[in-house]
Amino acid sequence: MQLSKTPPSSNGSNGHGLPPILPIAMDQPLHWLALGFKDFAKAPLLSTLHGLVLALAGSLIAWVAHDRFWLLAGGLSGFMVIAPVLATSLYAMSRAIERGEKVNLQLLIRTWTQWQLRFRKQPDSYWCLIRFGLLLALAATGWVITSSALITLFAPVPIHTPMDFIRHVVLAENNFLFEIWLGLGGVMAAPVFASSVISMPLLLDRKVSVLQAVLTSWKAVLTHPLPMALWAFLIMGFTLLGFMSLFLGLILIVPMLGHGSWHAYRQMVNVSDLEERMSGQGDW
């Protein structure tokens, strides 16, 4: 699939319209995983580097907060919410592979520095990915505060350590606090997923505002609720596998999901009328 060179129209970053959402099959998320793995195989060293960085970050969080439940919960919640931002260079790699361009360390450096270097030429788009990342961080903070209030109010004893949580919340008899906690987490995670699943690769690829990217992401989810629910389930399931493997599994899982997210965006959103934000050679 090649990116269109069609000139931007009124649906571009200066307009109020949203790009069309393309039809997809119910099992399309499985195809995204397969494409993500293919991209991983085409650039294994740099892809593995992303997974390694996040695996080390997760291990550091667990080591620092292993005996402090709320610090651990907050750290891992923030880790999961900010991960799409940190995967930005994985999207850039998949785009370069799609275009037949070189995938190297210079591509990663350009991806993370051109936002700042081109500030004077494009001030309206400066750090839009970072701004969106801050919004995700606020969402993670809101979840931790809400979760803490729920457990503090209804747990039979104060919860200080992960073992306290397992004994008195997860394994408690005649107490539905854990089920309520999971349900609340799902309710709060759903809008975060809907807001971010398409936004990050779209912000990298096209000159749109954060609001346009978020609304496009919601439009994609509402247009294809069942396939996107499957995609959310796959992301959560693989992420939990990564955590259960003492974060070692994230070395493979993170790049596979990151590359797969690029293909989810490309196969669902028609961006032919939106102006490109960056050329393959880093010209912002």
Rank of each mutant, 00 (worst) to 15 (best):
V210P: 01
A140E: 07
S94I: 01
H16Y: 13
L49E: 05
L252W: 15
R277A: 11
T216Y: 03
L230C: 04
G237E: 15
P225H: 13
W218M: 15
L138H: 08
T161R: 05
G51Q: 09
S196I: 14
L56I: 13
P7D: 11
F238I: 15
L215Y: 15
Y91D: 14
S9W: 09
E275N: 04
V85N: 01
G15F: 02
G258L: 02
L203K: 02
I251E: 12
F79L: 04
F79Q: 00
E98D: 13
G12K: 04
M236L: 14
G185V: 06
R68L: 05
F37D: 07
L248D: 05
G75Y: 04
L18P: 04
P191E: 09
P158F: 03
F132P: 02
V210D: 01
W127H: 06
L72H: 09
L90R: 03
M163G: 06
V210G: 02
F193Q: 05
P44R: 05
S272P: 07
I235L: 05
V85M: 01
F40I: 10
M188K: 01
G17F: 05
E98H: 12
G183Q: 13
H66E: 08
I109P: 00
F37N: 07
G258Y: 03
R120W: 04
F69Q: 00
V85E: 01
G280I: 06
L234R: 06
M188F: 05
F69H: 00
F69C: 01
A96H: 07
P162R: 09
P23C: 09
G186L: 12
P191F: 10
S199L: 06
K5E: 09
A87F: 00
T146S: 15
L203R: 03
R266S: 12
S4W: 02
L46T: 04
R110E: 01
N14C: 12
G133E: 11
D27I: 14
M163Y: 11
Q28Y: 03
P201A: 01
H31V: 15
I82Y: 07
M163H: 12
S89C: 13
N104G: 09
Q116R: 11
F119Y: 14
S125A: 13
L274M: 07
V169R: 07
H50N: 04
L134F: 10
W284G: 05
Q114H: 12
P84M: 11
Q114T: 10
N270L: 07
A155I: 10
A57K: 03
R131K: 10
P44N: 06
A83V: 12
L250I: 15
H259K: 11
A229N: 02
A137T: 13
H16C: 06
R120C: 02
